[in-house]
Design a protein around this nucleic acid. Structure first.
Length: 111
DNA sequence: CTATTGACCTTCT
DNA sequence: GAGAAGGCCAATA
C-alpha cells in the first residue's frame, strides 16, 4: 500500500463513473471505507486535475455544486463538460435526482 | 518535525 | 430544525 493508495482508489471510482452521471464526495469516501474522508477525496481530485483518464468534473459535492470548478483550467470548464455529457443543470447545481450515480461499496473486492 | 489548511461530510448539542 | 464541532487523509508553510 503506497501513500497515494487512497488517491488511486478515488481515481478508480471516478474513472468508472458512466457518462452523464455524477457522484458525491461522501459516497466515494464511504465506498473507500472512510465515512468522513470526503476532504481527502477533494485532494485526490485536485491531484487528478491533469489526468484525462480521471473525469473529476463528474464529482460534485453533496448539494450538487461544482465546488472544484475554480481548480480547473477554466471556472466554466466543469459545467461545460457536464453539459456535453448530457447532465441537466439546475442553475449552478446539478440535478442529483436525475444524475446521482452511486459507486460500488467494495471497489477493491469488486472487479 | 509540528501546525494549519483544504474541491467535505456526519453527528452531537 | 438550526448551529457548532469533530473527523478523516494529504499537502504546504
Amino acid at each position: 500500500m503506497s501513500s497515494t493508495d487512497f488517491f488511486e482508489r478515488v481515481w478508480a471510482l471516478v474513472r468508472m463513473i458512466p457518462p452523464g452521471k455524477v457522484t458525491t464526495y461522501g459516497h466515494i469516501a464511504t465506498a473507500l471505507g472512510a465515512k468522513s474522508a470526503a476532504r481527502t477525496v477533494g485532494w485526490a481530485l485536485h491531484a487528478a486535475v491533469g489526468r484525462d483518464d480521471i473525469p473529476a468534473h463528474r464529482v460534485v459535492n453533496r448539494r450538487g455544486e461544482l465546488t472544484g470548478r475554480m481548480h480547473f483550467a477554466t471556472p466554466t470548464l466543469m459545467r461545460e463538460l457536464l453539459l456535453a455529457e448530457g447532465v441537466t443543470f439546475d442553475g449552478e447545481r446539478v440535478c442529483l435526482e436525475r444524475h446521482l450515480w452511486i459507486p460500488p461499496l467494495s471497489p477493491q473486492t469488486d472487479q
